[in-house]
């Protein structure tokens, strides 16, 4: 399995990372090296083995469905790079 320049551009877009075109080939090479190395997992027979997502296999705890937090617009906006009143502001979205 090889990651070519086109694949790098595709996953960079999925990850919202602006990788410059002249770096894409080099990045692809690095990723290929890592993927070739992890390919040794193909040696392992995992037939019938359930995936383990969490080391304690724990079921997530449930709590009462009540509001426990909120009403902190000042805290939430405290680190905003750009804001107006109680809103975050971003570049224009509508084309």
């Amino acid at each position: 399995m090889t990651i070519d320049q086109k694949t790098v551009a595709k996953i960079a877009n999925l990850a919202r990372l602006k990788i410059p075109v002249d770096e894409q080939i080099a990045v692809g090479g690095e990723l290929n090296k890592i993927l070739d190395w992890v390919a040794q997992l193909n040696e392992v027979d995992v037939a019938g083995v359930e995936p383990l997502a969490n080391p304690n296999d724990a079921h997530l705890r449930l709590r009462a469905d009540v509001i426990t937090d909120g009403g902190k617009p000042a805290d939430i906006l405290a680190n905003a790079p750009s804001k107006t009143a109680d809103f975050f502001t971003v570049p224009k979205v509508i084309e």
């Binding site: 992890v38 997992l41 392992v44 995992v46 083995v49 359930e50 995936p51 383990l52 997502a53």
Partner: peptide, 8 residues
């Protein structure tokens, strides 16, 4: 696949 090997 990695999660299955993780269980092993």
């Amino acid at each position: 696949k990695a999660q299955r090997v993780r269980r092993l």
